[in-house]
Design a binder for these strands. Structure first.
Lengths: 349, 349
DNA sequence: CTGTTAGCGCGTTCAT
DNA sequence: ATGAACGCGCTAACAG
């Protein structure tokens, strides 16, 4: 069943290369790693032999000998706050960046409370390092990782600032740019549609951070701001929007950190006979093109820079693993404005 | 820097277990694998020793000796047809199922034409098997995998039916159920909104398959059906919808296999002064809850059974890898109806 | 039922 | 600048 293809192309090892090149295996090994000078002639022979044999070092043997697997794990627990469009891009980008750094990425879908399972996985010593997503306050996983002494990095943080290295979105800066932007366009009466009240109460990092930022910044920018919590139920979001607008006719702009609330919001605005963006402006923050560009009107966003985010995560972690100097241990990335059709300047009123 | 935590808990090997249990290493090995009978007493000693030492076999050493890594790769090329919400679930489910089968999942984000890179990765012998997503006609990757003799399975297919084992959505059955469902509700004049014309012309599997199914089934069910191709641009989708409805007032239902066209479609219908679902019914096929449930009205869908799909993929592949008998080599999964608020029965006309 | 031992393929120390 | 040889931790013959 295995050798049915005829040309089985027997996999060649470093020994084969050594023989063909007429040198010892260690010479080949050093020629590959470059950890020892090799004469040009021998180097030449070895290179030729490798090409002739289509030699590719065996990853497992290499790992066993070097005690480094060049594999990192992405801990991706089932997200309670609903899965968005950008998660895929996050994972893919992580894998891409890992490849660029000479690493493989494995996905572990453990829940945040499966400590024993995590410990087992770590102890198998399959991975050199770990990326933790969806970090909770007092996340038990962190203790495990520290105790075992395996390098790791947090992607996102909980409401409290962790003692460990992390990379996250800069919610405060994003909200500041957003409010500043709206103020520049003449808006004074804002509504912020956050995620569910439940997320907030459970201390989910993004939700509480952005809540605080909005409250603080409205005061500082002298804006009239109201925060509304919405879950993913569109009829409720629509009703809430409508009710609010009925009582607050001065409202001219909505800031949203809840992509799934967008249809309900848009509908609610329209039901009041208001137009977007002429009467009401909408901006979706911590969003993505895939989540906002196909609405009508197309929604202006502050989008996360997934590439920068994940690349920083991977670079940081692999730098530590490779013993290279790792400058930044905590970094915040603001979202980037992508103007579309849901925002207008306020003329009078 | 590594042993800073004090309690370094020196990792124990099979040898330590053997010594503590007073047996030989092979006995421990066989006790773990169960490939050889072990007396109850020794087995007992070994189990105790393992627990006392928190022993966990080293995955790499095991792989090197057994020539099986228990790692499979998910080939996830950058999708040209736009990334949806369900991709994340696909990946996560793949990882979960893999875990359930005792495997790890690594993500490789090679493009479909990066043959050389794929060959290199395979030759490193890090993975036991491969899952191919986004398969193209005459996909060069398949040749590579076959030549190397590594087990693999296709997830989805191109317009042509491949010679290799695959698992895919049953587009025909899905469309049939959908049309049958609409017919049962009295609808006779359908519009099918497919993905872009470009996708169709490039021979993208789902798009051409569903095109054929729709054409064939409308004839068979004696329905008046029209197919419209739409890309992800909402203003265009809206315009197309409006124009079509202006000329075809008998239209009572839309079938959509293009989640991103939904907002444009809904808006187009409304612009004609039509109500959903009273005047116009909408059903989104090959969709997902995350992509349809937050619209207003919430969209009725035929959703893919991601769990069943990926579990079949993983089970099939690992069964082959483990030498277990693998019954099904090609399987099609129809989508499942999730009724929401976008469909109504047609009363008269 | 159990122990001994030869590899798995490569990195690396110790010689030269 | 090069080679020989040992060992990484475990599996799987082979030998009782």
């Amino acid at each position: 069943m295995a050798g049915e293809k005829g040309k089985a192309e027997r996999k060649s090892s470093i020994k084969d290369v050594a023989e063909l090149a007429g040198v010892s295996v260690s010479t080949v090994s050093y020629a590959i790693s470059g950890r020892r000078p090799i004469s040009v002639e021998k180097k030449q022979c070895i290179t030729e032999a490798m090409q002739k044999l289509h030699y590719q070092p065996n990853a497992i043997a290499r790992s066993l000998a070097s005690k480094r697997t060049h594999i990192i794990a992405l801990l991706f627990p089932p997200v309670e706050h609903g899965i968005g469009i950008s998660e895929t891009e996050l994972i893919i980008q992580a894998a891409r960046s890992a490849t660029a750094q000479g690493y493989h990425l494995v996905i572990w879908t453990l829940q945040t409370d499966e400590e024993a399972e995590l410990l087992q996985l770590i102890q198998q010593e399959l991975v050199d390092g770990v990326i933790l997503m969806e970090v909770h306050t007092a996340d038990r996983r962190i203790g495990i990782l520290k105790r075992f002494g395996i390098p790791f990095i947090l992607m996102g943080r909980d409401a409290e600032i962790p003692a460990e290295p992390f990379i996250d979105i800069d919610f405060f800066a994003t909200m500041m740019q957003c409010i500043s932007y709206l103020k520049g366009l003449g808006h004074r009466h804002l509504v912020f549609i956050n995620q569910s009240k439940q997320s907030y109460c459970s201390g989910y990092g993004p939700v509480v951070r952005v809540h605080e930022a909005f409250t603080y910044l409205c005061r500082n920018f002298d804006m009239d701001g109201t925060e509304l919590f919405c879950d993913s139920n569109p009829v409720q979001t629509c009703a809430v929007t409508e009710a609010f607008l009925a009582d607050h006719s001065a409202t001219s702009a909505f800031v949203v950190m809840n992509d799934k609330a967008l249809p309900g919001l848009i509908r609610g605005v329209e039901k009041r006979g208001l137009r977007i963006p002429e009467d009401i402006s909408i901006v979706s923050i911590v969003s993505s093109e895939g989540a906002a560009a196909f609405f009508l009107p197309q929604i202006t966003t502050f989008e996360m820079d997934i590439h920068a985010l994940m690349d920083a995560v991977i670079t940081q972690l692999t730098a530590r693993l490779d013993g290279r100097y790792a400058e930044l241990t905590r970094r915040l990335f603001p979202c980037i404005l992508r103007e579309r059709q849901s925002i207008a300047a306020l003329n009078r009123e």
